[in-house]
Amino acid sequence: MEILQKISDGLIALKQKKPLVHHITNYVTVNDCANITLAIGASPVMADDIEEVEEMVSFASSLVLNIGTLNSRSIESMLVVGKKAKEKGIPIVFDPVGVGATNLRTVTAKQIIEDVRPDVIRGNMSEMKILAGIATEIKGVDSVADEMDGEKVALYLSQKLSCVIAITGKQDVIAQGNKVCLIHNGHPILSEVTGTGCMATSLIASYCGANDDLFVGAAAGVMTMGLAGELARQSLKAGEGIGTFRARLFDAVWNMTPEILEKGGTITNG
Rank of each mutant, 00 (worst) to 15 (best):
V99I: 15
G100L: 02
G100D: 06
A101N: 14
A101S: 15
T102K: 11
T102P: 10
N103D: 09
L104Q: 09
R105K: 12
V107H: 09
A109S: 15
Q111F: 04
I112R: 03
E114N: 14
E114V: 05
D115R: 14
D115C: 08
D115I: 05
V116H: 09
R117F: 11
R117W: 06
D119L: 04
D119C: 05
D119K: 10
V120W: 09
I121D: 01
I121G: 01
R122C: 13
G123E: 05
S126E: 08
K129E: 05
K129I: 03
I130F: 05
L131V: 06
G133K: 02
G133I: 06
I134Q: 06
I134W: 08
A135D: 15
E137F: 14
E137L: 13
E137D: 14
E137S: 15
I138F: 03
V141M: 05
V141T: 13
D142H: 11
D142V: 07
D142N: 14
V144D: 04
D146S: 11
E147K: 04
E147A: 09
E147C: 06
M148S: 15
M148G: 15
D149Q: 09
G150C: 06
E151W: 12
E151I: 15
A154H: 01
A154V: 02
A154N: 06
L155C: 03
Y156P: 02
S158Y: 04
K160T: 14
K160M: 12
K160F: 08
L161F: 02
S162M: 10
C163N: 08
C163L: 06
C163D: 02
V164G: 08
I165T: 04
I165S: 01
I165V: 13
A166P: 06
A166H: 03
I167V: 12
G169E: 03
K170A: 15
K170F: 12
V173W: 02
A175W: 00
A175Y: 00
A175P: 11
A175L: 06
A175F: 01
Q176R: 13
Q176W: 12
G177W: 07
G177D: 04
N178F: 08
K179W: 00
V180H: 07
L182D: 00
I183Y: 01
H184E: 15
H184L: 13
H184D: 14
N185Y: 00
G186Y: 00
G186W: 02
H187V: 14
H187L: 08
P188F: 01
I189H: 07
I189D: 10
E192P: 00
E192W: 00
V193C: 12
V193K: 14
T194C: 10
T194P: 11
T194N: 07
G195W: 01
T196K: 11
T196I: 07
T196G: 13
G197E: 04
C198K: 12
C198W: 09
M199I: 09
A200N: 07
A200H: 00
S202G: 08
L203Q: 04
I204S: 05
S206M: 03
Y207M: 09
C208A: 13
C208N: 04
C208K: 05
G209L: 10
A210V: 09
A210I: 08
N211G: 05
N211I: 12
D212S: 15
L214V: 03
F215K: 05
V216M: 10
V216E: 12
V216P: 02
G217N: 08
A219W: 10
A220H: 13
